[in-house]
């Protein structure tokens, strides 16, 4: 059981890293990785939202939708759950903890439409994960995305000083860096046979 959860965690964080091997969530990945500070803030917010929305989606899918035979509606429902939850968290946070809201508020809005947040519930329903497995998948995906963001931010801060040819400055070189990191992440392939 525990070994199984460990496998899911490592697989979702490293081997099937959402950014470097599934190429999902790239809009936030490129948008927020310019500075280390924002990357760290985004990582924490993202992981928290990921775990909670994975849990919520699992509950709704397995306790309401499957018994009612509404499994085919899952994509629409998952989008609704994530958007509703994030919007709710946004409002509540603004009211009870304005300091934290000030720090994390902008990230919350960005996360609502992120594809990884949608991919996690879809994968866990496809794989017929149980509750703990679904949460572990969310945690692993969050950790993998945080790892990607923080590596990328540190590299991009170093690239600020690099003598990159003009046409490649900014986004183009960021895409090239991502491709090269993905090449390095190939080393993890086959690490765990799921």
């Amino acid at each position: 059981m525990l070994e199984d959860l460990g496998t899911i965690f490592i697989a979702s964080a490293l081997i099937n890293n959402f950014v470097f091997s599934r190429y999902l969530g790239l809009c936030i990945f490129f948008g927020v990785s310019k500075k280390m500070e924002t990357a760290v803030g985004m990582s924490m917010t993202f992981t928290a939202v990921m775990v909670i929305s994975a849990a919520l989606s699992w509950l709704v899918y397995n306790l309401v939708m499957l018994p009612a035979g509404l499994g085919f509606l899952k994509i629409v429902v998952f989008i609704g759950i994530v958007a509703g939850f994030v919007q709710g968290a946004d409002t509540v946070l603004k009211k009870i903890n304005p300091t934290l809201y000030h720090k994390l508020g902008i990230y919350l809005v960005l996360i609502t439409t992120n594809c990884i947040i949608l991919a996690v519930p879809v994968i866990s329903s496809d794989e017929k994960y149980n509750f703990m497995q679904a949460i572990t998948l969310g945690l692993g995906s969050g950790a993998g995305f945080s790892l990607a963001l923080i590596i990328m931010a540190s590299i991009r801060e170093r690239l600020e000083l690099a003598n990159v040819p003009k046409p490649f400055q900014g986004m183009p070189i960021a895409f090239i860096v991502t491709g090269l990191i993905a090449l390095a992440f190939l080393g993890f392939s086959g690490l765990i046979t799921v």
Binding site: I151, F185, G187, S189, G190, L191, I192
Partner: peptide, 29 residues
């Protein structure tokens, strides 16, 4: 060692160095 013992490739030196290259700016920091 991780790649050699558990990974899909018999040799991991090349990928290990490339992966650690990703972490170089962080380590310097």
């Amino acid at each position: 060692v991780l790649i050699r013992l558990k990974g899909g490739y018999p040799e991991g030196v090349c990928y290990a160095i490339l992966l650690m290259n990703c972490f170089t700016p962080l380590l310097d920091r």
